[in-house]
Amino acid sequence: MREVWILTRRELRAFFDSPSAYIVLSVFLLITGWFFGNSLFVENVASLRSVFDLAPVLFMFFIPALTMGTFAEERRAGTIELLLTLPVRDGQVIAAKLLSVVVVLLVALALTGVYVLTLAVLGDPDNGATLGGYLGLALLGLSCSALGLFASSLTRNQIVAFILGFAMIFGLYLLDKVTIFVPGWLAPILEYLSIDFHYRNLMRGVIDSRDVLYYLSLTAFAGLLTAYHLARRPE
């Protein structure tokens, strides 16, 4: 546990020491702020709905941008060899990388707390929906981060890692959008596998353990794939 924490701290320091961190965070706030502002001031709706609706699509870009360097850059620079010959297990390294991305994500989400405060002052929002929405965002973000980490472990090139990460999340997002094209028996399966379907359940303020379980299993699955791939020690 101690090692995981030391690794996480190093990752976070490296992230917040670089200007790209602030660019990514600013862009994230700018986009969510625009949608929030629009619904509040133009449509006169005291709800975070528009921000929550946007989140899966936003995460498709935002999270691969955070994760693309995690393993790809270590592989390119050769530091992966230092890291994986330290007295830690591969799993601890993966956990630390995931944890550091999740911390950044939570910082980004915490910054959107400004919108929640604005709503509380200006209107009378549905707190249940807001809470469910944030839980959904956190879980969605967690599993997208795990996918992004896996994508990053597959290549030495950060751009390729970004595109792969995007493609994985986009693929899972599409699953419940194509149900009309498939035989009836397949539709519920696709729906269950969709990353967006479970998110919309949570966003309604209904916290169902099946949805929570889905995200946790997806995270674990992506983590295992990463571990499996790293164990082969790609060049």
């Binding site: 690794l7 620079a77 530091t79 330290l86």
Partner: peptide, 23 residues
């Protein structure tokens, strides 16, 4: 390792401290 991989964005002392902590 070959080619001496190091974390380029860290200061020398921080890097050594990190490796020591990991050990």
């Amino acid at each position: 390792p070959e080619n001496t991989p190091l974390y380029p964005d860290m200061a020398t002392y921080d890097y050594l401290e990190f490796m020591a902590a990991m050990r």
